[in-house]
Amino acid sequence: MLAGAALAVAWIGTAHAQFPERTLTLVVPFAAGGSTDVVARIVANKMSEDLGQQVIVQNIGGAGGNVGASNVARAAADGYTILMGTVATHALNPLILKTKPYDPEKDFAPVSLLVLVPNVLVVNPQFPAKTVAELVALLKAEPDKYAYASSGNGTPLHLSGELFKSMAGVSMQHIPYKGAGPALNDVIGNQVPIMFDNLPSSSGHIKSGTLRALGVTTAKRAASFPDLPAIAETVPGYETYTWNALFAPAGTPADVVARLNAASKKAMADPEVIKRMNDFSATIVASSPEELGAHVKAEVAKWTPIVRDAHITLD
């Protein structure tokens, strides 16, 4: 009996040591073409080289990332189906949705926090405020006169605006759109004067002058726009960003998680990947599984009062 148990343990160890033996699927819980999709495809390509098996990116959009994330949470815990998670899938959605499709901590095994991607506060060039300080003064002088656009209720861009309102002590109306693209178009067209957007998607408009950037949302300035102040230089402590991280289903063996973590770290250290991430305004982190787990806990704690005070709930 004991010999049989020992053989079973040895066989399991051998099976894990050989991981991976077939193609892996990296689920992106959003449509193709967005920042999360771009990061996923860059990383998947390099991880494939190290793992010796192809990592295929599969886009499963819907419900702000919940459909794709739920699919991975329910997948076999063998490391062959993994998720490119974000602040939406692992902090905001679980707080906002009345029906919780998964637990962001209990239903996933953290693999690695890959990158942080700044958001940026932009305004139409005709808007009178040219700095964050001038915007704060304007909003305090004329409460609720001005509005800001976002990619939709409960999205990271919406919550970036709510956090700004809370920390700066200002008031402005929120205009939700069905995606960042339509919102950005209306800011450029001056239908709505203000928006928080992902820096990569606004960068071309900032450089061409069709948008005026007031500040990035990360604690420090973005390397791609060194002359653009951080909002925190005017509103101390303000910090939001989009992040991308790899998660496996809960229960995935520790050695499989370690193999995925090692492959992702090697990918993020590749000179070509570093260059593309810099071009993308992304800051590479390449964390340990434990650091990602702590990051998720911190993000949930950070956003809980903001979601509560803004009375944001979605069915």
Rank of each mutant, 00 (worst) to 15 (best):
H16T: 15
T25W: 05
S287H: 03
F127R: 04
Y146S: 00
S224K: 05
E105L: 15
L92I: 14
A137M: 07
M1K: 14
K145V: 03
K106A: 09
Y102L: 01
I42W: 06
H158F: 12
L97D: 11
V67G: 06
T283D: 12
V256D: 11
S281P: 04
V132G: 11
V9P: 11
F225C: 09
E49H: 11
G4K: 14
N119I: 12
K297A: 15
S224T: 09
S151Y: 03
A222V: 07
N45H: 15
G34I: 01
I188H: 12
E290K: 13
Y241Q: 01
K140E: 14
F164E: 04
I60D: 01
T89N: 07
L26R: 07
L138H: 00
V296Y: 06
P271W: 13
F30K: 02
A168E: 04
I56G: 12
R308T: 14
T81L: 00
V120P: 02
F280Q: 11
D37V: 06
E290W: 08
S202I: 10
L214A: 08
F196D: 03
V38M: 08
A223Q: 10
D144K: 13
I312H: 06
I56T: 15
I206Y: 05
N198I: 14
R212N: 10
S208I: 11
T240M: 07
S112E: 06
G65D: 06
A5F: 14
L314I: 13
A258G: 15
S208C: 10
G161Q: 01
D309W: 04
D309K: 09
S264V: 05
P305D: 00
H205E: 14
R74M: 15
A75D: 03
A63S: 13
R74Q: 15
T217D: 13
N153P: 04
V120M: 04
A133T: 04
V170S: 03
T252P: 09
T89G: 14
I231N: 00
K297G: 13
F108L: 02
A77E: 01
A69I: 08
V115K: 00
Q126E: 09
V27Q: 02
L157P: 09
G237P: 01
G79H: 05
T99V: 11
W243K: 03
V132K: 10
A230N: 04
L199W: 02
Q191S: 09
A219L: 10
A286W: 03
R276A: 14
R212S: 09
V28I: 07
K302M: 07
N198W: 10
H295T: 14
A69R: 07
A258F: 09
Y238K: 04
Q54A: 12
A17R: 12
G154D: 05
H90Y: 09
I306L: 03
V187A: 10
V115N: 00
V257I: 07
V27L: 02
H90K: 08
